[in-house]
Amino acid sequence: MSRLNGNRAQAQAEHLKVNVAILGAGRIAHAMATTLVKMAADPHYADLVAPYAVAARDGERAAAFAAQYGFPVSYGSYEELLADPQVDLVYIATPHSLHAEQGIMCLQAGKNILVEKSFTANAAQARELLAVAEASGLLCTEAIWTRYMPSRRMIDDIVASGVIGEVKMVDANLCYPVSGKARMTDPMLAGGALLDVGVYPLNFIDMVLGPRPIDRIVTSMTPYETGVDAHDAITLHYADGTMATAQASMLVSSDRGGYIWGTDGYIVCQNINNVEGIDVYNNDHALVAHHDVPAQLTGYEYQVADAANAILDGLTECAAMPHADTVRIMELMDQVRNQWGLTYPFE
Rank of each mutant, 00 (worst) to 15 (best):
T222H: 11
R27T: 10
H237W: 14
W340F: 11
N273T: 13
R216F: 13
D206I: 13
G6R: 05
W261L: 15
A248P: 03
D306F: 15
Y300D: 08
L251F: 11
Y69Q: 06
D215A: 14
V20S: 01
Q68R: 08
Y344T: 01
T141A: 11
W340H: 07
T245W: 05
R8S: 06
G137D: 11
V293M: 07
D186I: 06
V132E: 03
M39G: 13
L236R: 09
V228Q: 03
A123I: 12
R153E: 10
M221W: 03
L98Y: 08
M250A: 10
R27M: 09
P211F: 09
A193E: 09
E166P: 07
Q10M: 15
H231Q: 07
G341C: 03
L98H: 14
K38M: 13
G180A: 15
T245R: 05
R212E: 13
Y78P: 00
L195W: 07
A239P: 08
M250S: 04
Q296G: 14
D47H: 13
G341R: 00
E134H: 15
I28C: 05
K38I: 10
A160F: 02
Q108C: 02
I144N: 09
N7P: 07
E317V: 15
T222F: 09
S77K: 00
G110K: 10
V327Y: 04
H99Q: 00
M221L: 03
S161T: 03
Y45R: 03
M39P: 04
G137T: 09
A246H: 06
A29R: 01
A123V: 14
V288R: 14
L16E: 11
V252I: 15
L114A: 04
A131F: 11
A123E: 11
L4G: 08
E79V: 00
S254K: 12
A121V: 06
I234D: 04
I267H: 07
